[in-house]
Design a protein around this nucleic acid. Structure first.
Length: 425
RNA sequence: GUGAGCGUAGCCGAGGGGUUUAAGGCGCCAGGUUGUGGCCCUGGAGGUCGAGGGUUCGAAUCCCUCCGCUCACCCCA
């Protein structure tokens, strides 16, 4: 028996209302903030991600789905959405458009990891990127937009974590200080952090092992070592967040696992959940990425959020989701002549915009009505020998349990009289 | 990659060596009305008890191995 591959899942019809709601809110909020949709390929040249995310990151080192296609090219199922969007920005010369260019995407991303709650090998990300402006007001807007998305879905008890990790000017100096601080503490670090000290010292700060946390306690903070320009940017951002009424918590240990970030980094997560896969969304500024990918130097800021984590939290907070309406009418029939009549009538109803279903497989009238009831259909039409002979239909109200004869030619106007056509929906 | 828990029909779930031809509930199908749903009653279909091996006269039940699922760690959405 075949099963969905590990870390993948079928999103079944009963789950879809959650996803549909999330998609609707996403489209609405993007319209509100001026973002246009972009769809990029699900696979890309493997080098795109190694270049942008960073060779030393977990994603690139152990989580990417890489394969060689039949032409011998090395491809990667995309592990995230920012790099492809930036590639598209450069490839299509979007620097000629009014800046910033605001783009959003919704689609699957792939990472080879052990699955657990809120983490799948194929997951769905919604993300957006504002490319072409360094104004901290844009950072604030990006954060505000995510916050509005979550709250418009009804999510509450969220917290915004914020940090600045500087730019290519000030970060190297900071990293040097960080390494210096750790020089005497190296013996206390876990094996992973021994590696990080050499390859990616920023990541030393967010190791969760108690001994490493202890070692990190008095580590120099990136926000205390920003250059004048980065400090100004960070302070302005905080001021703007204040103007927007967004509560935030500075977290000097928040560094994020992707190399392309500069200056602003942030995460939004539910309060009171630690450890588990709690982060709803995260992002930051990546002022060097476009140039890294061959464009001219272009500042940018963006966010990505996990759709299944939103759904997870909607369920956890027991928030209601709208259910799709059942069909309006069920056409039941008894006998060959009636079945022929039912086929024509059902088609006619649909063409008039009425959601209509008819019984299949020559089942008993009882069985047909039972199914109509189970599906929540509120009206049934019954056609038997007598109705066929007289050119009539029996129209049964499944809620009231009452029925009446209607001339076949008048059925549409009768239904309209009951406000059951699309004109009234 | 590491650790823990769990695998009995579509779903939930009893049974922990011998009348077990594997309970019960939900769902599905049909009948109780020669053309009428919901409630009720009756019946039916549906299972290599995750897989393989071992112990035993006898294994869903005990042992081993493997596989899968779930949760957690690492890391992230």
């Amino acid at each position: 028996m075949y099963k969905a591959p590990r870390g993948t899942t079928d999103i079944l019809p009963q789950e879809q209302p959650y996803w549909e709601l999330v998609r609707q809110k996403i489209v609405a909020i993007c319209q509100l903030y001026g973002y246009s949709r972009i769809d990029t390929p699900i696979f890309e040249d493997a080098r795109l991600f190694a270049r942008s995310i960073g060779e030393e990151t977990d994603i690139v080192e152990k989580e990417m789905y890489v394969f060689q296609d039949r032409g011998g090219d090395r491809m990667t199922l995309r592990p995230e959405g920012t790099a492809p969007v930036c590639r598209a920005y450069v490839e299509h010369g979007m620097h000629n458009l009014p800046q910033p260019v605001k783009l959003y995407y919704i689609g699957p991303a792939f990472r080879y990891e052990r699955p657990q709650a809120g983490r799948r090998r194929q997951h769905y990300q919604f993300g957006y990127e504002a490319i072409g402006d360094a104004d901290p007001a844009l950072d604030a807007e990006v954060i505000d937009m995510a916050w509005q998305l979550y709250t418009s879905l009804g999510l509450s008890h969220l917290q915004l974590l914020l940090n600045s990790i500087g730019c290519r000017e000030c970060r190297p100096k900071y990293l040097a200080k960080l390494k210096e601080y750790y020089r005497d503490l190296a013996g206390q670090l876990c094996a992973d952090c021994q590696q990080r000290l050499v390859r990616n010292p920023l990541r030393l700060l967010d190791c969760k092992r108690p001994s490493c946390q202890r070692a990190a306690r008095h580590a120099p903070r990136s926000a205390d070592h920003l250059c004048a320009a980065c400090l100004e940017h960070f302070q302005q951002l905080q001021r703007y967040l204040g103007l927007l009424g967004l509560p935030y918590k500075l977290d000097h240990r928040l560094v994020r696992g992707l190399d392309y970030y500069t200056r602003t980094v942030f995460e939004i997560q539910p309060r009171g959940v630690s450890g588990a896969q709690s982060t709803l969304g995260g992002g930051g500024r990546y002022d060097d990425l476009i140039a890294e990918l061959g464009g001219k130097p272009t500042p940018a800021v963006g966010l990505a959020t996990g759709m299944e984590r939103i759904v997870l939290n909607l369920k956890k907070q027991k928030l209601p989701v709208p259910q799709p309406p059942p069909a309006t009418i069920w056409v039941a029939h008894v006998g060959d002549a009636a079945k022929a009549e039912a086929i024509g009538l059902t088609a006619q109803l649909r063409r008039a915009g009425v959601a209509a279903l008819m019984g299949m497989g020559g089942r008993s009238l009882k069985a047909q009505l039972r199914q109509a009831n189970a599906l929540g259909v509120s009206q049934a039409i019954i056609i038997g020998e007598e109705e066929v002979a007289r050119g009539e239909l029996t129209l049964r109200d499944m809620v009231a349990g009452q029925q009446q004869r209607v001339p076949r030619s008048e059925i549409l106007s009768v239904l309209k009289g009951r406000h059951l056509g699309t004109d009234d929906i």
